[in-house]
């Protein structure tokens, strides 16, 4: 074996053909051991949890499908979706403002982000709850004169649910703005130039060319934000809204003096809703991936020779432009 010359292999192995390779799989002893240890730990924990009285499993079963709780889960979902939709629209507007040539729009967008990212969402929600007290009445008129057109109490007309939607959306919009901005900057400069060279206006270029392409980069972190928002809704008790999942389960648990089982019930519902949202994200990502690499695999079409991978040529051309790397999507 010390011989370094090409050792003639045994006749059977030397004959190569196109037949599939049959080889002994590489073993991973450490991996296997680790898996067994983890499996054992899980079994121990589950066994222990199943028999531990503090979890009060019968109560979990009793309240899991309690109407009040499933309704609260629905309200949580609606709250999440509405505030996210509003936040995405606002974020898009803020991002486009930030990237525009107009210094006024830029400054407004920057200030908004500074304010709403710089203060805790809980504090903001408390403020939203107090708006009705702070602005008991608003008078429209000409300042420093006696002329008054009308006086109104704006926050009398808005119920707590919508206040919660606004509170969550205004906070989230600041984060969405940065995600959208990253997405827009990830689109190669050449795309914008090609559209403008065709005579398309700035608005058309943005709506038809740049934003659709940025979606692929925007969606993964936005999915993250949606799931994060689902859990942030548990903070809206700060402004007095108490019909969402967490507040509802807390209320029930304080009635029946059982904290742990209802926390488990709430967790199960949060997990369920998160799972539903993740499925939605999967389909959205698939839609916006059209025309890009994975589609080729789906069609089963061979890649023609001399193909320039989409984006690579553009990426080279725009390598010297000030693009920031797209935000990395995380899937929690």
């Amino acid at each position: 074996m010390a011989d370094t010359r090409a050792t003639p292999a045994p006749a059977s192995a030397r004959e190569s053909s196109t037949a599939p390779i049959k080889a002994v799989k590489l073993r991973h002893p450490l991996r296997t051991t680790f898996a067994i240890v983890i499996a054992l730990l899980v079994v121990v924990f589950v066994w222990d949890a199943a028999t531990r009285d503090a979890y009060q499993w019968p109560l979990v079963a009793q309240y899991l499908f309690d109407r009040r709780i499933s309704q609260a889960a629905l309200i949580t979902l609606v709250l999440t979706v509405l505030s996210m939709v509003l936040a995405i629209v606002m974020g898009l507007v803020l991002a486009v403002m930030r990237l525009s040539d107009n210094p006024v729009l830029k400054a407004v967008s920057w200030t908004y982000l500074w304010l709403f990212r710089g203060t805790p969402v809980y504090v903001q929600l408390v403020f939203w709850g107090l708006l009705g007290t702070i602005y008991r009445s608003v008078t429209i008129g000409i300042p420093f004169t006696d002329v008054e057109f009308f006086t109104a109490a704006p926050f009398d007309f808005i119920n707590l649910f919508w206040l919660a939607v606004l509170g969550l959306a205004f906070n989230e919009a600041a984060y969405m703005a940065e995600i959208v901005r990253g997405g827009i900057l990830s689109v190669p400069r050449g795309q914008d130039e090609a559209a403008r060279a065709l005579g398309m206006s700035w608005q058309q270029t943005m709506l038809r060319i740049v934003v659709p392409q940025s979606m692929r980069v925007i969606i993964p972190p936005t999915g993250n934000e949606v799931i994060s928002m689902l859990k942030t809704t548990s903070l809206v008790t700060a402004l007095g809204f108490s019909l969402e999942l967490y507040a509802r389960t807390r209320a029930i648990s304080s009635q029946i003096y059982a904290t742990v089982p209802l926390l488990i019930v709430a967790s199960i519902w949060y997990l369920l809703v998160t799972s539903i949202l993740m499925v939605g994200q999967y389909y959205l990502e698939k839609y916006y991936a059209r025309g890009v690499a994975p589609q080729r695999a789906l069609d089963g079409e061979p890649i023609p020779t001399g193909t320039v991978a989409p984006g690579t040529a553009n990426a080279e051309a725009s390598a010297d432009t000030d693009t920031i790397p797209p935000p990395k999507g995380e899937h929690r």
């Binding site: 190669p188 050449g190 795309q191 130039e193 090609a194 559209a195 403008r196 060279a197 065709l198 005579g199 060319i209 659709p212 392409q213 916006y288 059209r290 025309g291 890009v292 320039v308 989409p310 984006g311 040529a313 553009n314 080279e316 051309a317």
Partner: peptide, 16 residues
């Protein structure tokens, strides 16, 4: 610009 066509080195077709 609408009356002037332009072709780029990197094609710049709209991939979507």
């Amino acid at each position: 610009r609408a009356d002037i066509g332009m072709v780029f080195q990197s094609f710049n077709l709209f991939p979507h």
